Simulated assay, not measured.
Amino acid sequence: MLKKLCLLLFLIVAGGLPSKAQFVKEYKVSEKKDFDLVQLNFTTYKSLTQLKRVKTLEPLYIHGHLSKSNVLPDFRYSIKRNILDATLIHKNVESDNLGKSITSKLFSSETDFEHSWDIGLGSNYLYELDFNLGMGAADFDLSQIPVSNFKVKSASADVVIRYGSDAPNQVAMDTLLVTLNMGKVEVQRANFTNSKKIILEVNYGKIDLNFSDGMSAGCQVIAAVGGGTVNLKLPSDTYPIKIKMKTTPMCRTSLPKYLKSLDKETYVTKGFSASDPRLLELILDVGVGSITVE
C-alpha cells in the first residue's frame, strides 16, 4: 500500500512539472506553373534553421517546431511576372535588441534555441534566398538546388553552407553574401557555389572558407573579420589565385611557402595569370586576430 501511495505521489509531482511545450507549423506552395524563379525571404529569431533539397515537384516546403504560441509566424506568397515571391516572418520584438542577443549568445548553449525550422526546396526551380536569422544557428545544404543569389544576415549566429553530395550549383550564382555581427560562418566546397562574388563579413568571430577542389570559373572573394580568425583552404598552386591581405600589427598571418609575394600585401600562386577566366581573387581583411592559409 505504501509503495502504491509513493508511486501515486511521484506521478502527481512529475505531472505537475513544467514542460517546454512545442507546436508544429507547416507551410508549402503547391503551385507549379506560371513562374521560373522563386524568391524566398525568411526571417526568424533564436532558431535552428536547416535547409536542403527534397524530392518534390513543389517549389517550397517549410516545417517548424515552435516553443511559443504568442508569436505566430506570418507566411505569404504571390506569383507575378514569372516570379514566385514567398515570405515567412517569425519575429520577436524583444530579440531585436542587439546587446541582448550578444549577451544571450555568450551565456547560452546551442540547445537553448526556442525554435527549429526545416526548409525543403526542389531541383526544378531557380532560387533567390534571403535569410535574416536574428540569433541562432543555420545549416544550409545547397546540393542539387539551383541558386542564383544567396544572402544571410544575423546579429549572432553560426552559419554552415555546404554541399552534402558531389552536386555543384547548376547555375551561375551572382552573389553569396553572409554578414554576422557575432558568430562563425563556414563555407565548405566553396567552389561548388559557382559564385561570381563571395562576401563574408563577421564583426567578432570566425570565417572558415574551403576552396580545396579548385574553381571552374572566376570568383572574387572578400573575407573580413573585425576581431577573430580567417581560415582559408586553397586548391593546388597550379590554379590561378591572387590574395591581397589587409591586416594590422595586431593580426598574425600564416601562409604556405608556395605563395609568391608581389608586394607586402599581395601573393599569388605559380599558376597565376591575370587573364585566366578561372582566376580566384581574394581579399582577406582582419583587424585583431589571425589569418591562416593552407
Rank of each mutant, 00 (worst) to 15 (best):
K257W: 01
V152R: 07
T269P: 08
Q220S: 13
T292A: 04
T87Q: 07
H90S: 01
L232I: 06
R189N: 14
L180W: 04
S156C: 15
S108P: 06
Y77G: 00
K100I: 14
G99K: 12
Q39R: 15
G289H: 07
K46T: 12
S78I: 08
T229N: 09
D276K: 10
L176Q: 08
P73W: 08
H65F: 11
L106E: 05
E294Q: 14
P235S: 09
V147Q: 08
P249L: 11
A157L: 09
N82Y: 10
Y27A: 08
C251W: 00
I207T: 00
D263H: 06
E186R: 08
L17E: 03
K105P: 00
V71K: 05
L11T: 10
S236I: 08
E281N: 06
H63A: 01
Y61V: 08
D112A: 14
D96I: 13
D158H: 00
T44C: 14
T248Y: 02
E110T: 11
Q22E: 14
I119D: 00
R53I: 05
A172F: 04
Y127K: 04
F42R: 04
K153W: 06
F272P: 08
N124F: 08
E294V: 12
S67V: 05
Q39H: 12
V54G: 04
Y204Q: 15
L282T: 06
V29N: 14
K28D: 07
V38W: 07
N231L: 03
D96Y: 13
M215W: 01
G287S: 12
N41Y: 08
T103M: 13
H63F: 11
F211H: 04
L129D: 02
K260W: 09
V147T: 11
V160I: 14
F10P: 00
K196N: 15
N132P: 03
L98E: 14
Y61N: 09
D174P: 00
G120V: 09
V29G: 10
Q170D: 14
K100H: 09
A274V: 08
L57F: 04
I12Q: 13
V185D: 02
G99S: 08
E201W: 00
K242G: 00
V13G: 00
T87C: 01
N231W: 01
R189Q: 13
N132K: 13
V225A: 02
L48M: 10
A217D: 12
N203Q: 12
K91M: 09
K55L: 12
N210F: 07
D237P: 06
M215D: 01
E58H: 03
S195D: 10
Y127R: 04
Q22S: 07
Y163A: 07
F131S: 03
D237N: 11
Q170K: 15
C219N: 06
T238H: 03
G205K: 05
E201T: 01
G227W: 05
V152W: 07
G228F: 03
S109Y: 07
V152K: 09
S212C: 02
T179G: 02
L255F: 12
L282P: 05
S19G: 04
P18L: 15
D263I: 10
V230C: 01
A223L: 05
L98N: 11
S104R: 15
